[in-house]
Structure formats: C-alpha cells, structure tokens
Design a protein around this nucleic acid. Sequence first.
DNA 1: GTCTATACACGGATAGAC
DNA 2: GTCTATCCGTGTATAGAC
Lengths: 202, 202
Amino acid sequence: MVRSEARTRKSEETRERLLDAAAKVFRDKGYAGARLCDIAERAGMHTPGVYYYFPSKEELVEEVLRVGVARTRGYVQERVAGLAESASALDRLRAAIEGHVLMVLEIGDYTSANIRIFGQVPDDVRARHLGDQRAYGGVWRALLEDARAGGEIRSDLDLGVIRMLILGALNWTAEWYRPGPQTATEVAREATAMICDGLGVR
Amino acid sequence: MVRSEARTRKSEETRERLLDAAAKVFRDKGYAGARLCDIAERAGMHTPGVYYYFPSKEELVEEVLRVGVARTRGYVQERVAGLAESASALDRLRAAIEGHVLMVLEIGDYTSANIRIFGQVPDDVRARHLGDQRAYGGVWRALLEDARAGGEIRSDLDLGVIRMLILGALNWTAEWYRPGPQTATEVAREATAMICDGLGVR
DNA sequence: GTCTATACACGGATAGAC
DNA sequence: GTCTATCCGTGTATAGAC
C-alpha cells in the first residue's frame, strides 16, 4: 500500500514535470512548432515516455490549456476576494487586471501558453476547451456589470467589446514584455490607469 | 516589348494572388500549420508553382510580414494626415486607433496575418523584420509624445508601456472579432472611448 | 510558368525489450 | 516507467517534361 502510493506520487510528479515542460515549449514555439522531443527532453525523458502519460499531442495540449485557464481564474478570483469589503467595483476590476497581468508575466507559464496557442490548436481541441474559456470570461463580465450597475463606469459602453479589449491589452503583454525596464507590477499599474481612467487629463 | 511587358504583368498578378493566398492561410493556420499546398491551391496552382515566385516558405512569409506593416503604417498615417489642421493630438491618436482597427478587422489580410504569425516565424525571419516593425511603432510613439507635449494626456504614464497596451487591445481583436453583433467601426469607437477617456464616469 | 513525379527530412506514434 | 528501434504519414523542396 505504501509502496504503491509512493509510486503513484512519483508518477504524479513526472506527469507534472511533463506538463510544465509542455507549457513552456508550446508557449515558445506554438502548437505546430512544438516537437514532442523538445518537450520530452525538457522533462528529462525521451519522446516515447510522453505516451505513458498522454495518449497524443492533442490531449497533452488540451491539458495545458485546461490548467491554464483554471489557474488564471483561481488566482484572479482569489485576488478580488482578498480585497476589503469596502472596495468599490472599480477597485475589484483593478485587482482583476493586476492579477491577470501577474499571471501572464510572472507566475503562469500555463497562462501565457494558453494565450499564445489557443488560436492555433486543432478545431476539436479548441471546441472542447471553449467552455472553460467562457467560464473565465464570465468572471470579467460580472466584474464589469457590477461596476456599471453601481454607476461606477460609463453607461454608453458595449461591455462585451470592452471586456475583450481589456483582455486583449493584458494578453498581448505576453508578446512583448521582457523583464528589465519595467516590472510586471508596473505594467499592471499602467494598465489599470489607462483602462479605468483613460489617457486624457481629467 | 509589348509581349514581354504583358507577360511581366501577368506574372506580377500571379505573384500577388499567391501573396494574398499566403496571407490568408498563414493568418488562419499559423506559420508552422500553414502548408504550401494550401496556399498554392488557394492561388489556383500546385505546390511547385510557388517556387517560381519565392525560393522558400521563409521568404514567402517574410514578404507577407513586410507588406503587412507597410500597408498598415501607410493606412494609419494617411488617416491621421487626413484630419483637419485644427485636430488635437488626441484626435490624431483616435484616428490612428480607428485606422489600425479597420486594417485588422476589415481591410488588411496582411495586417491580421502579421499580427498572428509574427511571434511564430523562425528567429532569423523575425530578426530581419524587426526594423519594419519598429518603424511602425515609431508612428505611435510620435503620436503619444505629441499628445503629452501638448498637455493633452496625463504626465504620469510610461508611454512605452502604454503604446504596447494600446496596440495589444487593438491587435487582439484579430483573435475574437467576428462580423455580426458589432461592426469594425463600432469596435474602434469602444476602443477610443476606453483608451482616451477610461471606463470610469467623469 | 506550371505541371507530374519524386527525393528527402522530420515528427508523431507504436512495438517490444528491460 | 522508460528505453531503443522503427513505422508511416506528411510537408518542403527539387528534377525535368511540356
């Protein structure tokens, strides 16, 4: 019993190493450009070893996508929930923006992988993943609608479009940000400033 | 002389058909996912025909990238230049936002292709293309700095980061927008509203 | 200029030993 | 569980006819 548990744990760890490696390689090379041998090597094994854990490249990428949204949603919700009761709806939106940026730039290889490869995976994989994606979109929809209901944001905006513009600004950071000139927190600060308050002088 | 000119013109047209096809296929499938046979078929020829016009897949994608930024920059600058003399720096920024969005969503297959595949092409192709990309970035840098110099936008922002956040919000529309609920012009309007004025009530 | 035929390399996936 | 060996489909690229 103990032995088999230990074995299971080791297997669990290897599977995770493999997923971690897959997230990084998919993010860097894209779906079609990522080779299973690159992923295997990064996880310290050879190509066929992958097939002990996942039946195909498609199922591997699917799991990366799934973990990506799940962790992102969890982290963003946690940050929003961690605010004081007195926080305004706009403050909650700011917290979500900051959380999402930190996941993309610092914490989440799975998050950045998800962002970069979602548009490249085979149609059936993307179709199966759409539900998870929409659930995360729902978090943002609620934040925006709360803010509008509370009169904290303008009433003349199409919140569906605004939601995608916000996520676009944040997701695109995965394409250009390199640590150095600015920290991820600074990028998040610029984002909340522009999105909530605009560039124009007040 | 006439004969050879006619031949050259036809060749020129075929080359353009091929590039048009390449832009669409690269945009839809990504760089690695795009097959030369897909591109050739869409252009009404067979795979080897491609090699009469381009020596390799890399040089083909390079040309698509080049045309993409060139046209985008041209169109955006044209729109900005078309404004009345009395236009403010913020109005000029709004015109650039609208122009860029229209290129991504309606006019420019090469623009959307560029956006979606730039991060996927082989390193040497991307390196050769960086100069063009930066030149277009310069257009936006100038617009933002003019606005700041004129006191039309807040002085506490990092314009380098802001520039990338703006382009991110606009570029990401290529990932989610489908004609239907909103027109491209409406998306552009939401973008200018959020970016220049912010979500918060004034 | 564009075709058919084909060389050639590569990457996903399987077989079977250990 | 992970290895070596290998199959096989696919995609870039070339040869050479028309």
